[in-house]
Design a protein around this nucleic acid. Structure first.
Length: 380
RNA sequence: GGGCAGGUGGUAGAGCGGUCAAUUACUCCAGACUGUAAAUCUGGCGCCUUUAUGGCUACAUAGGUUCGAAUCCUAUCCUGCCCA
């Protein structure tokens, strides 16, 4: 199900193939986010065309609307949205945190007070599994819980215990229902929590490993506020306690240089809203020219200095926007709120991320990853 | 020619004696965004400076009243409507 095809000699980086019922996924890989069953502003076929192999969708949102029963009726999320690649579904655990004002967590599960209709909905580890089976995703996650980056140790410890208990319950439910589901090849992955605390990460990783999953996520590292170093620490505290040959996904990460660094620490897959959300907000990621070093910079297309800049965002980029339009024109699209601007930015940034993971894979293949990772940086 | 209503910062449009460098919206400028309640949010937007319960210049123009005027008075210019 996951085959490591090459390990880097100097770091924990590796390249591998994750086999799913919807094609092979080459790792390290970046998963564009399609929370509600759509990558905002672009079609599934377009994304596939640009080379994405797996996307992430959200259990909570799809459960709320249009409902997992309807998606099951449609033949599963792949068919529903016409996405031919892999689908990774978040369990709804992130919403327990990000919608904290609207949620109440107990050992039994999470109750959500919907801001749309005011109703209260109760999500349990078992229900999350059922929903994800109805969605027919290729990789499903156990419901987990985490809190603020600054959360005190005591409360993090409680969340670690709860996440473990929920993982166990999710695992049992998944075993029970998988055979008769839309996607009998769906994998259920566990999640390591534990905040920034070495012993709690250790404890959580051991507990999740003991329950046994085909892959693991490192969670609770990208909720804003924490320092980058603490994020890497969380990975370093977790990964050594998990089987080396199983895939590891770093949830919610991140910036390009963070992904490069996390790969060197043994992470295989990533998902993040940054390329799509920031694209919608007018920020473009641009690779440095080879003569300027290894790395990238960002530009805000609405900046006045691009008003009369008739060059592409990046004339070495093979994305649709860079092939066809100038900064001046794209700035105009943003200034006049033409949806095309958002589409071009989303495509460009996703292509940037896909190209980045391609470069990471290539450099591991050719034994040059460490050199690459040491140089790779954001240039301001 | 006569009557009436108006002229406020990039725009629209509040304010109608002090708390006004002037509500608000838009435009514009800058920034943020990490398992997407996010095509969103925040800040700035007269000039200067030692960035401050600081200085200066400003609400059509010119005078005047007043301790004090975007706000009141007079004249002038301009705009719209109505009557000749």
């Amino acid at each position: 199900m996951f085959t490591i095809t090459k390990k880097d000699q100097k770091t924990k980086a590796r390249i591998g193939v994750l086999q799913t019922a919807h094609g092979n996924v080459h790792t390290p890989v970046f998963l564009p986010i399609g929370t509600k069953g759509a990558i905002k502003s672009i079609a599934a076929e377009e994304l596939r065309f640009w080379g994405a192999e797996m996307i992430l969708a959200n259990t909570y949102h799809l459960w709320q609307r249009p409902g997992d029963a309807l998606i099951a009726k449609a033949g599963g999320l792949h068919k529903f949205m016409n996405w031919k690649g892999g689908i990774f579904t978040d369990s709804g655990g992130f919403q327990a945190f990000s919608l904290a004002k609207l949620t109440k967590v107990s050992d039994q599960g999470v109750s959500f007070m919907s801001e749309i209709d005011g109703n209260t909905h109760f999500l349990t580890p078992e229900l999350s599994v059922q929903i994800q089976l109805n969605l027919g995703s290729d990789i499903a996650l156990v419901l987990d819980e985490f809190g603020e980056a600054e959360a005190d140790k005591k409360s993090v410890a409680i969340m670690v215990l709860r996440t473990r208990a929920w993982a166990k319950r999710a695992r049992l439910m998944h075993e029970k229902l998988i055979a008769n589901s839309i996607n009998p090849n769906q994998q259920l992955w566990g999640i390591v929590q534990g905040g920034v605390f070495r012993d709690l990460r250790h404890q959580s990783a051991e507990a999740i490993k003991e329950i046994g999953f085909l892959g693991y996520c490192i969670g609770g590292v990208a909720n804003g506020g924490e320092s980058e170093e603490l994020m890497y620490q969380a990975v370093k505290f977790s990964n050594p306690h998990l089987e080396e040959d199983k895939p590891k996904h770093l949830l919610g990460v991140g910036l390009p240089e963070q992904i490069v660094k996390a790969v060197s620490l043994g992470c295989d897959s990533f998902d993040c809203v940054i390329p799509t959300r920031e694209g919608r907000h007018g920020k473009f990621f641009v690779n440095l020219k080879p003569q300027d070093g290894e790395g990238y910079y960002t530009l805000n297309i609405t900046a006045e200095k691009y008003k009369e800049d008739f060059e592409p965002i990046d004339n070495t980029c093979d994305c649709y926007g860079c092939q066809n339009y100038t900064k001046s024109y794209i700035r105009h699209l943003f200034m006049s709120e033409e949806p095309l601007g958002i589409r071009l930015a989303t495509m460009h940034n996703l292509k940037f991320y896909l190209n980045l993971t391609q470069r990471i894979r290539d450099s591991i293949e050719t034994g040059k990853f460490q050199e690459f990772s040491k140089k790779y940086q954001l240039v301001l």
